[in-house]
Design a protein around this nucleic acid. Sequence first.
DNA 1: AAATAATAGTTGCATTTGTCCACTATTTGC
DNA 2: GCAAATAGTGGACAAATGCAACTATTATTT
Lengths: 160, 160
Amino acid sequence: MSDAGQKPTSIEHVDLDVLEDTLSFYIRTMNIAVSRDLDERLDGLDVARGTGKITTLLLVDSHPGIRPSVIAQLIMKDRSAMGRLIEQMIDHDLLVRQTSASERRAHELFVTTKGAELAAKIRPIVTKQSKDFFSFIAEEEQAQVMDILRRAYRKMIGMK
Amino acid sequence: MSDAGQKPTSIEHVDLDVLEDTLSFYIRTMNIAVSRDLDERLDGLDVARGTGKITTLLLVDSHPGIRPSVIAQLIMKDRSAMGRLIEQMIDHDLLVRQTSASERRAHELFVTTKGAELAAKIRPIVTKQSKDFFSFIAEEEQAQVMDILRRAYRKMIGMK
DNA sequence: AAATAATAGTTGCATTTGTCCACTATTTGC
DNA sequence: GCAAATAGTGGACAAATGCAACTATTATTT
């Protein structure tokens, strides 16, 4: 009970207890903020909301024929969630799907013309959003954080 | 369209397009991983799942009489979401609520005995989880990332 | 070659969450 | 005293998440 001040009525009176020094807290909280900001910038672009649509579109665009299961690993979704995501994007005429000739269990994904256009459109938005959002952090520090988190991410998904 | 390899069937064949250098991507993705891991460790503790319960419990424990709206700002929820969260925690006998004498619009929150016990129990878990999860990152680098994200967070919620 | 296991994907269901909007009560400012 | 701001509640609705069961296809075992 570190009780920093009586009955705080403003965030200025508050310390975050052990969360103050907990990296996972900041990751989780920044996630909310950055995701909201991103959603705003992508408003109306039928790739907004939720994690995965952007990554899926860009990956399919730059890796034609990629499988759902590969994307699922990269964005840490289970197959059912991934399937639903793809279904949705097919409904929106961004992707098409065909079963692989060599591996008839698997699907191959491709972007439609509309999908390719959207990919081209969001690429700069996504890049800019990240830069803008973290703009008050020095470029150098941004790069540091990114390097570290990139390593974490790769480890996480079992990439070598 | 950087098409790094034909029809990738494994994550090793894939590059992340512009997301490779996008900080927000890593934040969003690490969030998923770290949240899952945390949920596992808190399994059964009726503070698991979703952002906010942990922060709320610890904050109320260390700042008796704190208002819902203050917590809402700190965890970036709107008032209605915050209200539901508190409702839930009251149902679980972790918190109690009373209207403030001086500000009859506002509520003051307090932990119950059960809430205090749970707070004491999860504090080390939360701390350890974060350390463990990022253990393959050098202590020094963890601290760096945390410093930077802490500044980002404070800016974000309008803390000076 | 037949049986078994593993992989890729789909479907349904229950649970949560988040968002938006309208509503009451109280306090503050003019 | 009236209007605006603040604190909190409640309802509706759309998404996302997690889990488990199910089909189809390929790999492995014996």
